[in-house]
Design a protein around this nucleic acid. Sequence first.
DNA 1: TGTACATCAGTGAACGCGCGTTCACTGATGTAC
DNA 2: TGTACATCAGTGAACGCGCGTTCACTGATGTAC
Lengths: 192, 192
Amino acid sequence: MRYKSDHKETTRRKIVESASREFRTHGLEGVGVANLMKVSGLTHGGFYAHFADKETLISETTVFALQERLAAMLEALELGGFPALLEMYLSQRHRDHPEFGCPLAALAAEMARHPEPTKDAFTMQLRTVFDALAEHMPAKTAKQRSSMASFVLTSMAGAVAVARAVSDEVLSQSILESTRTHLLRLGKEPQG
Amino acid sequence: MRYKSDHKETTRRKIVESASREFRTHGLEGVGVANLMKVSGLTHGGFYAHFADKETLISETTVFALQERLAAMLEALELGGFPALLEMYLSQRHRDHPEFGCPLAALAAEMARHPEPTKDAFTMQLRTVFDALAEHMPAKTAKQRSSMASFVLTSMAGAVAVARAVSDEVLSQSILESTRTHLLRLGKEPQG
DNA sequence: TGTACATCAGTGAACGCGCGTTCACTGATGTAC
DNA sequence: TGTACATCAGTGAACGCGCGTTCACTGATGTAC
């Protein structure tokens, strides 16, 4: 080995992470390979030494983003339980910073139009997210917790996506607030 | 007037409607002007006799789609009330036909990245949708109905967007089902 | 009713540009002696 | 320790293509007489 054995792997990881931020900010079709490499301090030609094509990178960045988000959500849950999860996900901060945010809110609609292998990777990782969240849902049975995790996450994602699209700050805030209120109530109710 | 006085207006409307279907299917960046015109049986050069630019068309198609969706939702509400709305919006049929579906589920994330005038038009029309839906929400006060309309619509949009992105049919169905179950329960509860 | 004309909705070639991808190369680095 | 060499991560010119937009034009249509 001419370079340190982990040199290439480190570069690759750096590309995946910065590309994942670019994609969440500008959309999967909104950033080109040349720009993604530039952000990582490289030139476009080297891209294909790391990835088969742009689609492969999209697949990896989406999985990375889901893992990153799951970690943030679990941290909130451990710190302040279910209400803290809502507070964090439905915050102005999350709305205004898609680059560090949930890929469901930023990319789910686009993901629906991508090739099957990409959707497969996304689906696998999403299942992991649902399962991990389910353990922390305030409901009695495992089935209820699982259903609740799905509902809570997809409804929050919808609220953040629409709140980002709305140009009126007051309406945007009220969209986040409505979801916060209703989900908080859901967390307090006896599940049956 | 050499042509019938409404000839151009008819063509324009045809372009807006078919473009709105194309955008909901392939995304705002996923279809080009040439293709949009072809779908309407025209050539790309004529586009600029009808619209200032592609962005103007995007703005109009989004408003059109929101109006179309609102009509469909009001029809469901009048036919079968709140449960019928959930049934219709969270159906396989809606998931599998974005071209006739809700622009929130298909385009909200992309809309967030578009210029302010486009977001303004979207925001105005979305407010109309929220207000109209609010009248039909099962809650006591106007404030509660308004908040509920926002929550119900954005959470359904999130569920459909994610259900479309998931490649596993069972998981996809269960996402829709979870939202249906929880929102149905919300409709039955005393609001306070 | 039939013809000549003016209108203008729609046509299609052309533009500059950025896209994803390929490939011959360069030059910084670790190794061998 | 110092030099010659092999490696290979990264470079950048080049490709074909589709994009949004412009513009000189064409030809179907309604009007005038």
